[in-house]
Amino acid sequence: MTDLASENPDNHPDSEEEGALVQEARLWQGNGWTAKVIKNEEDEGWAVAMIRDGEPEPALVGPWTMGRDKKNPKPLDVNAFHTLVKTASEVIRRHEQQLQAILHKKLWVMVDDVEYKVTMEIVPDEEHPFAKLAAFNPDGDLVGSVRTSAGFKLTGTSAAKWIESGFRDPA
């Protein structure tokens, strides 16, 4: 096994090696991410773009600090890179949580003195998106389900009407 620290005292992979990670002042790779310091098109400052490996677009673009000469950007370093990875990962996690909340909804509704849990799972098919409604009794048993429009608005009122209709398609 090769000891990278002994071959390269700065512990920076040699960019000439095939598949080696780049760790330079304006480009830094590692942990499945690439940080690129870029000229901010809107003013004279600089920005940093964080791109997750395999993704076409940056997960995060934010302002970057000017260097001491007030002309060039501050160089990337390992500590700044790790902070940027943490921030970009959090942005992606929040986006995934928001998508999860949009695609998977649940609520409880009382109908004829029985409390039902109603779920709606949206299937975001590009050509024909749809939703699956399901109702569960207090024991957790499935008592009704139907495929409906992805645009169906699940509310306490709409869920109660659906249950009262005998679980017919509400669309």
Rank of each mutant, 00 (worst) to 15 (best):
M1K: 15
M1E: 14
L4K: 09
L4G: 11
D10I: 01
H12T: 01
P13G: 08
D14C: 07
E18S: 03
L21K: 02
Q23E: 05
A25K: 02
L27V: 01
L27W: 02
W28E: 00
Q29V: 01
N31I: 05
T34Q: 13
K36P: 13
E42H: 03
E57F: 06
L60P: 00
W64K: 00
G67Q: 07
R68N: 15
R68P: 11
P73E: 09
K74F: 08
K74I: 04
L76V: 01
T83N: 15
L84A: 06
L84N: 04
I92M: 12
R93L: 09
I102M: 06
I102T: 02
I102R: 03
L103A: 00
K106R: 15
W108C: 12
W108D: 13
V109F: 02
V109R: 00
M110I: 08
M110P: 06
D112L: 11
E115C: 12
Y116D: 00
V118P: 02
E121C: 14
I122H: 09
E126Q: 09
E127F: 12
F130K: 05
A135N: 02
F136W: 08
N137R: 15
G140C: 06
R147H: 08
S149Q: 13
F152E: 00
T157V: 10
T157I: 13
K161H: 10
I163V: 12
S165W: 15
G166A: 11
